[in-house]
Design a protein around this nucleic acid. Structure first.
Ligand code: ZN
Ligand code: ZN
Ligand code: ZN
Ligand code: ZN
Lengths: 168, 168
DNA sequence: AGACAGTATGTTATAGTATAACGTTGCTGG
DNA sequence: CCAGCAACGTTATACTATAACATACTGTCT
């Protein structure tokens, strides 16, 4: 029998209520920052909102462009600092294989990160948090005497939707 | 009881016979290219040798610098093309989280890749090929209807040696 | 009030990574 | 010979990220 999905995640349908995704993410971010005594400033909020503009990772310079449409046109460090803050507080993750950033859809502890499934066709990216996978990683590290501190797991392929539309 | 090491890999000691690592890698590369009908040209060989200069990932521009010491001073595309070739033939891998490249120490089939353990202190990086981890990844993909094509697994932490010397 | 420390943001310049586009060479098969 | 191809050279440029210093605002201590 097929085992149950290892975590609560899925590829969002094009028709889903994305405004709700954004609202939820911003609301939770506000709470998380308050709890940690961190300042969720207007700029940081705005950057997070832009990152959550879609379920595709977004580049730092695309964020800059989006900010420019809002009237301001900050220099790169402004955006990178906001991203650093958001990453440090577990609100966004960096997708190393695309030099881009995506909103965090999990609630992890510290500077942790989940595992990402990235569609090479539509770019849609979801964050999983699979305990079996986490366990396999810990065991690999332990078996070689390695003190694991941080994991980057990025899986590229075709999401269910693109898989169908490309007849694969 | 502790289970056996999941794959034949280890963090090389500083004292190991690295010249042998290099010779072995170059020899096997030659064979692999011949078998695939690919041209293992002097330039490609030279780049592979530079990449194998250590067990640390090396940046493309560092490779350029190394080539410059050999008398030539090619432009970036030269090195990137050689790296593309070597990657396509499974002779080097790109470490996404460091924008750097490392020699492949496994024999995989197509454009596959192993899992990397990267020491944040000394930079030493080893490639593992853990079947349990691979299985966990396949299952995660399958559970979400994702057609997996390529994996990036980069684990950062402290290697056994640095762990000791830093008293962690 | 005045001095000071801490945090966030603004600004300028530059470093680091990667690719587009086109030219040249050298080989192979008709 | 010549068309076609692969490898490599060359120039310019795009994309990503950070260093270094300046400004603004907040709260605290004296
Ligand atoms: Zn959504
Ligand atoms: Zn897709
Ligand atoms: Zn070695
Ligand atoms: Zn180390």
């Amino acid at each position: 029998m097929p085992k149950a999905s290892p975590a609560a995640f899925y590829f969002p349908k094009p028709s889903h209520d994305h405004a709700n995704c954004v609202a939820k993410a911003l609301g939770e971010a506000e709470i998380a920052c308050a709890r940690q005594g961190a300042q969720f400033t207007p700029l940081r909020r705005q950057v997070l909102e832009i990152v959550w503009g879609s379920h595709n990772p977004i580049g730092a310079y695309e964020i800059l462009d989006a900010l420019a449409e809002g009237g301001r046109r900050p220099a790169p460090p402004t955006v990178y600092r906001a991203l650093d803050f958001l990453q440090a507080h577990g609100l966004v993750h960096r997708i190393e294989s695309k030099n881009a950033y995506i909103g965090c859809s999990q609630r992890h502890e510290g500077g942790e990160s989940g595992q990402f499934l990235i569609c090479r066709a539509c770019g849609q990216t979801v964050e999983a948090c699979d305990p079996d996978l986490a366990k396999a990683i810990s065991q690999l590290a332990a078996a070689s005497g390695f003190a694991l501190e941080c994991q980057t797991v990025e899986l590229t392929g075709l999401c269910p939707i693109c898989r169908k539309s490309l007849h694969v």
